[in-house]
Every structure is written in structure tokens, then in C-alpha cells.
Design a protein around this nucleic acid. Structure first.
Lengths: 347, 347
DNA sequence: GTGAAAGCGCTAACAA
DNA sequence: TTGTTAGCGCTTTCAC
């Protein structure tokens, strides 16, 4: 007997009203056991009448399952991550999970803190898209919380990984630019310690070498995935002599920044400078933009990551899986044949 | 004695190792009571040694506070909501809350379900940015979960509201276009049942009237905040005769779609057609875009919403508050003086 | 300053 | 089929 002016009705209140035991109510709730139709009916009525809502926290405490996954992304404001997040939430809902969101800017400690809090909140699993993984991940190798890596993997981490073949994507871009007559191709990297950035850089190098293109040290730099930094970097690259005829940025944000940088110093895109991005965020397809880029299946990446995580949560113990999804290079309006002088300089 | 091969150490394990009672450990954890330095020391050491992490779920169950807020947005993929979400997560973290994310596409039942689940998960408060509010909100008027409305308010809901003065923002846009010589201004609305869309439409009407401008019924329509729909809508608007010389879209996404629509039928922006958006998502400022728009303080909206919510959770009972933040109209590259024939047609 | 005991709301044996 | 009991991990009186 505990029912006067309490906040929310509990399973006990329901039991009382339905004249059954709490255990029976619980059974009805989980639609699982053998409960007589008569009891079930009474319980259902009581639930309805009382406006009862199960307390998921109590359930979780008891069952040791919160039916919650944690998602850590650097920045929800970045459309690339937003798309992944959308895929993740959708798949999570369909699999019966709630989604806890944490943003951890690109720092190891932030990632660590976020993961720590998520673990304390008893998430059943973790989705990690952030950097700093190499170091920060080790701790919860020990804990039993399964996790899957999205877009960036970590050398030390033995966990499922979902992404694309960044290396070959980057190669394809360089080959395409080469085919357009470009010989001086600049590269703007993202975060040097992100596997995705590293792989793209590697692919870039490999293709340059394969095509016998030389690379000026002035034509390579990193802009931390930041629009502004890429803008400034390109401005300075365009001061060099001979200047690049094409810029390949390791992500769309930087490519867009590069574009603004070029425009700000009177260099026309694509006539004077071709620009290629990476990721294929939606805005690259807009009428005013039409950025050439490598389109990743971002939404599907998010979905797939949750599926794999779900399997792990269910107890799957197979060795770490790697799932590489197909990407697609899209040549759009920011790439054109290299300017004459550029080609001549090679012949 | 309960400690062989258990998953995670509990407060009991810590107590045992530190040779104190669980109650003492708890006191140390919350840095609150009178605990002797000697005990505290022992406890801290035990925590360290065992790698103990408090179980936030158990804490929540006991204290009836989950230190969690729920955020419901239509679509995390929409930069406008992403910015709000970022502000919300940041402020939430600073206030000691975790953030549960749910997306509920623009439907009443989806919103209802999302809120329902969040309540079951015992969030301390709710942030609502979705539509369908008028109907769906009523239920948890009854429950004790406080909530605040962001960007859209509901007539029936008596709750804190955070937004901007959409009506006057829209008026400002029309006046600006009028000043540029535009006389035939089309309007693309978002969701008719969203307060934000309604207010913008209202402001549009008011200004048109105030300036003695007539409005063809062919020059007004709704595109559900969708890029594609706006694109098609504008295509058909441009078939009308006389056609509009300016389009005012109730959100940036639609403005961008309108742009593509115009381009697809050979109408130049801004020479033949001026376009204005609303919200001021970041991409409108990019080099390739430069969309004229009404810039909302999206990030601050998200932050403020959480602050207000926090106060409510603390027990504040003052009547519903309305917080209107300043906006800023930015005339950029998609607006220009009306074409000659357009002006002439008025004189 | 500290510990024993009760209980948050629920589920899972086990008995009946 | 149903109810009783114990307890998930924690906090919180209330004695001592």
C-alpha cells in the first residue's frame, strides 16, 4: 500500500488495482510468459486506467541492459557526422535502442571523458567516430562495453570498423585530375592522427608516385577539417610559384574553404584552379556549389555501425570485423582541364 | 561478500576494500558530508585500485533524478536543428546533464512516441523543436516532466518558449525587397502547422499589405521545408505571367532549392530573380552560396533552452516564459534590384 | 564521523 | 498460472 499522491504509478499500483501480483504485471508487460487471458486483461485495464509507464531505468538496473547506445562524434554541426548520426538513430530505434549523444571535440581527453560518462550511464554499446582513438580506447578494452568504430579506426583497438576505402578513393581523385591535365596538385589534409586522413594522404602519395608527379612541400598542408584554416592555407599556396592548378582537400568542409580562399585572391574555380573534396556531404550537390568530391554512404555507415554493435551486444564474439562500403567519385563543376600554362610546364 | 568475477566493482566492493561502510563511500563520492580525511583517503584509494565507476542508473533510480534531458528534433541532418542540438549539448554538459537524442519526423504520432519513450527513460526534462505540438503535448502536461519549446510554440502548451520574432523578421525581408524595387514577391512557406512558418507568413502578409503590394495566389505555396519541393514549386511559379521578381522562402533549405529551381529553367539569380531565405544556416555564408537570409542565433537558442529547462528542473514554478533572441537580416548575393520590366509593370 | 537498514521500481528464480 | 522473495547499485534517514 503506497499509493497516495505519488508522482507516477508503479508496477505495484497496477498490481493492486488489477488484483494480481507485481510479477504478473511484469509478465504481461514483457508479453512473454504464461499469463491467463483473464489476468492479462485486468492488468491491461489497470495500466490504461492509471496511465502507467514502465520505468526503463529500473528495468535496466535489474536486467543489466539499458537498451541504450552511446554515440560520440566530434561535432554534430558537421554535416558528415550529422548524416552518420541520423543513420545511427534510425537503426537504433529499429533495433530497440535509445541513443545517447555526446560531442567530443577532437581531443583525446574529451573523448575519454565522454566515453567514461557513457559507460557510467550503462550504455550497452558505444559508437566512436572521434579521433584520439589510438590512445584513449585502451581503457575500455578492459570493460565489457562493446564498441564499433566509424570512419576512423585505431591501430591498437580490436573492434569492428565501418568505413570506406579511403586510400583508393584518394587515388581515384588524383588519377582523375591527372587525366584532366593537372600536374601540380596540392593536398590539404585533415587531422594527421585520424586514420581516415592518413589513408587519404597515403592514397594521394601513392597516386602521385604512380603517375610520376612531383610534389612541392609547399603544396601540402593540414587544416584540421576547418573551413577557415583551409581558406588561409590555400591563399598561401596560391602565392607559391609555380602555383598548383588543382587542390585536393581531404574533406568537403576544407574544400569549400579552399574555394573561398581562391575566390578571395581572385583565382577562378575551376578555370584557374580545380578543387576536389571528400565525403560528399549533401550541400556539395547544391546548385550554387556543385563540388567535385568522393561521396561516402554516410547514412548507411551509421546504420551499419549500429547493426554490428547490436550483434556484439547480443554476445557475438567473432574477431573484429571490417566493413568497407562502396564510395563514388563525382566529377562536378569545380574541376576542369588544367590551364594551358600548367600543362605546358610539364611538356 | 559478493565479489568473484563480477562485471564491474560496486560501491560495496569499494567499501570492503577500504574497510568502511557503503554509506561512507557514497558520502565520499558526492563530496558532500562529514567524512574524516582518513576514511576519505582510504575510499579514494580503493576506488582507484578497483577502477570503480558509479552506476548512474542506480543513482538515478534512488534519487529520482537522471541528470538527463531529452532532445526531440525533426531531423539532425538539417543544419538548423544541428546547430540547436550543438548548443543544447554544450549547455547540457556544462549544467551536468547528459543528452538523449530522438528524431521525430514531422508527425504528431512520431513526436508522441518519442516523448513517451523519453519519459519512460526518466529524463528530467524535454526539449521540443518538433511540430504537431498543439495536439501531442497535452498528455505530459499531466506528467511532471518539464519541457521547453524551441523555435516553435504551441497554443495549448503553457511552457517556456525560446525563439525569435519571426513575424518582424519576415516583414523586414519584404521591406528590403520592396526597397530594391520588387513588386511581385512570391512566398514559399514551410509547414503550415508550425508556429514559426505561420508567423513568417503572417509577417509577409502584413508587410505586403503595408506596402500596398498585391499577391497573386499563384505566388504563394508551401514546400514542407524540403529542398526538392521548393525547387519544383519555384519552377512552376516561374511559368506564371507576370512572374515574380523575388522569392522569399521561409527557410534556407527551401531558398536553396528555389535557387536550383530557377537555375534549372534558365532564370538567373539575382539578375532575373532575387531569393531570400530564413534561419541563416552556416552554408548560406559560403563563397559559392552567399544567400540573403535572416540569421537566427541557433546555437544560443539551444543553449538558452537548456538553461531555462534547468531552472524548471530545479523547481522554478513561475509562469511560462518567452525568450525572443535578436535575429539579423543579411543582404548577400542572391538579392539585387528588380529587373526593369518588373518595376515598369507597376508604374 | 560512521554504519545498519530500508527502499527507489523493476525482474527472475523458485514455490505454491 | 500465480505469488513470494530476493536483489540490481545506489542514497538516505537515523541510531550509535
Amino acid at each position: 500500500m503506497s499509493g497516495h499522491a505519488r508522482q507516477h504509478p508503479t508496477i505495484k499500483d497496477v498490481a493492486e488495482r488489477a488484483q494480481v501480483s507485481p510479477a504478473t504485471v511484469s509478465s504481461v508487460l514483457r508479453a512473454n510468459k504464461n499469463v491467463s487471458d483473464i489476468s492479462r486483461q485486468k492488468v491491461l485495464e489497470a495500466i490504461e486506467a492509471l496511465g502507467y509507464r514502465p520505468n526503463r531505468l529500473a528495468q535496466a538496473l535489474r536486467t543489466q541492459r539499458s537498451r541504450t547506445v552511446g554515440l560520440i562524434i566530434p561535432d554534430i554541426t558537421n554535416p558528415f557526422y550529422a548524416d552518420i548520426a541520423q543513420g545511427a538513430t534510425d537503426q537504433a530505434r529499429e533495433s530497440g535502442y535509445g541513443l545517447f549523444l555526446m560531442t567530443a571535440c577532437e581531443s583525446e581527453t574529451a573523448l575519454r571523458q565522454a566515453a567514461e560518462e557513457l559507460v557510467q550511464r550503462q550504455v550497452d554499446g558505444l559508437l566512436l567516430t572521434s579521433v584520439g582513438l589510438d590512445y584513449a580506447i585502451t581503457p575500455w578494452q578492459l570493460d565489457k562495453v562493446p564498441y564499433v568504430l566509424v570512419n576512423r579506426y585505431a591501430k591498437t583497438a580490436v573492434a569492428d570498423y565501418v568505413g570506406i576505402d579511403n586510400r583508393s578513393g584518394a587515388q581515384e581523385v588524383v588519377r582523375f585530375l591527372h587525366g584532366l591535365g593537372h600536374r601540380r596538385i596540392a593536398f590539404i589534409g585533415g587531422l594527421p592522427h585520424s586514420s581516415a586522413s592518413r589513408d587519404r594522404l597515403e592514397g594521394f602519395y601513392a597516386a602521385m608516385q604512380e603517375l610520376d608527379l612531383t610534389l612541392s612541400p609547399l603544396h601540402i598542408g593540414f587544416a584540421d577539417l576547418q573551413y577557415d584554416k583551409a581558406m588561409k592555407l590555400v591563399q598561401s599556396m596560391l602565392q607559391t610559384e609555380p602555383r598548383p592548378s588543382a587542390v585536393f582537400a581531404a574533406d568537403d568542409m576544407m574544400a569549400l574553404g579552399a574555394w573561398e580562399g581562391a575566390q578571395s585572391v581572385g583565382v577562378r574555380v575551376p578555370q584557374d584552379l580545380s578543387i576536389v573534396g571528400f565525403d560528399g556531404i549533401w550541400s556539395t550537390a547544391w546548385a550554387g556549389i556543385q563540388l567535385s568530391t568522393v561521396v561516402q554512404p554516410r547514412y548507411e555507415l551509421g546504420r551499419l555501425a549500429v547493426s554490428l554493435l547490436h550483434e556484439r551486444i547480443q554476445g557475438l564474439t567473432s574477431p573484429a570485423r571490417v566493413r568497407l562500403l562502396p564510395y563514388q567519385f563525382m566529377a562536378r563543376r569545380t574541376t576542369a582541364a588544367a590551364p594551358i600554362d600548367s600543362v605546358r610546364s610539364i611538356n
